[in-house]
Amino acid sequence: MADHDPKDETRERIPAMQSLLENPFLLLFIGVAMPTVFYIIWGIMEVVTIPLAQ
């Protein structure tokens, strides 16, 4: 623990990935956007583009 003195830590910047994981609303956004784009929107496009029967 010697190299992890809490007083030193307070000065160190929080890494980007940790900041991401500490931002609930950003996570909420990407957690909703991912499946909306890849599952729902892409899926709806699949259904819409099914051709008409002859």
Partner: peptide, 10 residues
């Protein structure tokens, strides 16, 4: 409990 280190990512 909160993680023991403030910067746990490292």
């Amino acid at each position: 409990l909160p993680p023991a280190q403030r910067i746990w990512w490292k």
